[in-house]
């Protein structure tokens, strides 16, 4: 049965125009109507235009045949972004009772060239949906493959989240996140997926149950790379809806102090400390000493309270966002008494 994949291979070798193929002799192509005096007339390549002319003919006649299926593969090969072609292909898959596992293979081949295309992923989802849990491994493997090339691929992550929720396969997902973070600890998509897993996996017991071990994991990540925006945001996310626990957890303030004392890459440690103070945290003398030890040149040490001092330092070390820090300073509960 035609799966649609062989035609594309054929195409890559020596392509014969449709008008020269005997099996298409009975079809009259329907040319694109660009409307009266097109404002943005587009000149298509001749081959693509011909495929679309035949496609329109077949689509309008609603011809559910193997050759129509091959034709959709050719049209997709030229332009994977056409909604109608994909839609008609799904109708054909159903009418012709095509083996959908074969279709998944076809999609993989198309995606290899054009993975940022919305239609491909939508089509993939519809096919996997039809297959149900049978498609679970294929979907997890497929997205893994795409993510091995581009670990922040938005469509692949989105599809993977859908697959986990619709088809299952949560068991190894936290390990997979750790694996990706080991490769690139700055990968915000992997951090997001980690949060998705600990808050939504039916096997892990939810955020509260995971907090202790996740805080340890995150603090290690922060220690290794304190300049990582993602790990700091993740740490804050672990206390979602529980600001008091966040403020009172000594692990949070300690990591801030540790990074501040190291005197390098301390921007997020400083801003986290500022957030803690704004939520009621009382820093002790150790914090004060650590901040004074930073000795930022040209810093006006008029700021008596620690929060103002932190804001002044942030204005210096993050000049592109100076207005943000000035605003933060203006909102401090007790500005420089």
């Amino acid at each position: 049965m035609a799966s649609g994949s062989s035609e594309v291979e054929e195409e890559e070798q020596e392509r014969v125009m449709l008008r020269d193929r005997p099996e298409w002799a009975d079809v009259t192509p329907v040319p694109q109507d660009d409307g009266p005096c097109p404002v943005v007339p587009i000149n298509y390549t001749e081959e693509f235009a011909e495929v679309m002319d035949y496609f329109r003919a077949v689509y309008l006649a609603d011809e559910r045949s193997p050759r129509a299926l091959s034709l959709t593969a050719e049209a997709i090969h030229f332009n994977a972004g056409n909604y109608t072609v994909w839609h008609f292909r799904r109708l054909l898959l159903e009418s012709l009772k095509v083996d959908l596992h074969k279709e998944l293979e076809f999609i993989e081949r198309i995606a290899a060239k054009n993975s940022k295309n919305y239609q491909i992923w939508h089509h993939r989802r519809r096919v996997a949906e039809k297959l149900g849990p049978d498609a679970r491994n294929a979907e997890l493997q497929f997205t893994k493959k795409v993510l091995s090339v581009d670990a922040k691929h938005y469509h692949a992550w989105s599809h993977r989240q859908w697959a986990l929720q619709a088809l299952g396969g949560w068991e190894d997902e936290l390990d997979y996140c750790s694996e990706l973070l080991e490769q690139d600890i700055f990968n915000n998509s992997a951090w997001n997926q980690r949060y998705f897993v600990i808050t939504r996996s039916p096997f892990l017991g939810g955020l509260k149950a995971m907090r202790e071990s996740e805080v340890l994991y995150t603090i290690q990540a922060i220690e290794a790379y304190p300049e990582n925006e993602s790990s700091w945001k993740y740490l804050r996310g672990l206390y979602k809806g529980e600001t008091t626990s966040w403020v009172n957890d000594p692990q949070v303030s300690s990591i801030c102090l540790k990074i501040l004392s190291s005197k390098s890459n301390y921007l997020f440690a400083l801003s986290t400390l500022l957030d803690l103070i704004c939520h009621g945290y009382q820093p002790n003398q150790d914090f004060r000493d650590a901040i004074e030890a930073l000795k930022i040149p040209d810093l006006d040490i008029q700021d008596l309270d620690i929060a103002s001092m932190i804001c002044s330092i942030l204005e210096k070390i993050d000049p592109i966002r100076v207005n943000y820090w000035i605003w933060r300073k203006s909102r401090l509960p007790h500005v420089a008494q």
Binding site: Y154, W157, S158, Q161, W162, N188, S189, N192, Q193, F196, T199, R200
Partner: peptide, 9 residues
């Protein structure tokens, strides 16, 4: 994100 749980973009 694009759907619940999707990464901020």
């Amino acid at each position: 994100g694009c759907t619940p749980g999707g990464e901020s973009h």
